[in-house]
């Protein structure tokens, strides 16, 4: 029975991680075509670092992802607080449309953005990319943070008022600190969404501002280059780190929830 279970788990992990492990192994494979093992090397990592256009695309991607994640989280936090705490005309409409945006296929959004930017005469590059990334990250940010706010005991805010706190004080001393885990998860979510977006980015950026997924996409059209493997191995490491961080955050969130 135990052996059966072991095989089962091994099978799942094999199925899930075989493609990635092939990629990671090839990042260290001296054989250029990766069909068979040619010996261990760091050569491709050096080649990757030497590939200026690839490095530049990576830098662009990180800049866009950091900016988009930070702005989307900030706007999302204010939106979530507003939607949760106040009752105003159009509240339900905003909630509904942000969900629609999340469900809309990327290709539709991509075309919509393109049309918008062209109509407004905004050049395709950094700003068009940043605006569109903030937009498609925003619903996820609102959803993550709203979920957290809804878990709060509404009496906590009454208690803060009862103890003399003004609206400003309540925001700074109660709502924001209690939202912290949600802000971090929202930021991480937006960061990853932005970093690996291909479809929307391919429509709204121009040749002046290449980002990583697009660069990789164009590089592999003529066969997988080994330095792409090296880059991918690094990205796997980065994702792993992000997953661990977000899991730790989630654990903290659970602890807080026990008190409510």
């Amino acid at each position: 029975m135990n052996i059966l279970r072991l095989f089962y788990f091994a099978g799942i992990f094999f199925y899930l991680y075989l493609p990635i492990s092939v990629l990671v192994v090839n990042a260290f494979n001296l054989n250029k075509y990766g069909m068979k093992w040619g010996g261990f090397t760091f050569k491709w990592f050096t080649a990757m670092l030497g590939n200026h256009s690839l490095m530049e695309a990576a830098r662009h991607s990180v800049v866009i992802a950091v900016c988009a994640a930070s702005l989307a989280t900030m706007i999302g936090a204010l939106a979530a607080i507003g939607l949760n705490r106040y009752r105003f005309f159009g509240r339900k409409v905003i909630q509904g449309t942000s969900m629609t945006l999340m469900m809309a296929p990327d290709i539709i959004l991509a075309i919509a953005f393109l049309v918008l930017f062209v109509t407004l005469g905004i050049g395709l590059g950094f700003w068009s990319l940043l605006f569109s990334h903030i937009t498609f990250c925003l619903p996820f940010a609102i959803m993550t943070i709203t979920g957290r706010l809804q878990d709060f005991d509404p009496n906590i805010l009454d208690a803060a008022r009862d103890l003399g706190a003004s609206e400003k004080n309540i925001l700074a001393r109660v709502i924001l600190p209690m939202m912290r885990p949600a802000l971090i998860s929202s930021w991480l979510l937006a960061f990853t969404l932005s970093l690996d977006d291909v479809i929307i980015s391919s429509f709204v950026t121009g040749p002046s501002y290449d980002v990583l997924p697009l660069k990789i996409f164009s590089m592999v059209k003529v066969g997988v280059k080994p330095e792409v493997n090296a880059l991918a191995a690094l990205l796997v490491l980065l994702s792993l780190a992000l997953v661990i961080v977000s899991q730790l955050m989630l654990k903290e969130k659970k602890n807080h929830e026990n008190t409510i």
Binding site: I156, D158, A159, M178, H256, T259
Partner: peptide, 11 residues
């Protein structure tokens, strides 16, 4: 006020 749910600040 002392609330039924205590409403302590969890953080």
């Amino acid at each position: 006020t002392v609330f039924q749910s205590y409403a302590l600040f969890p953080h």
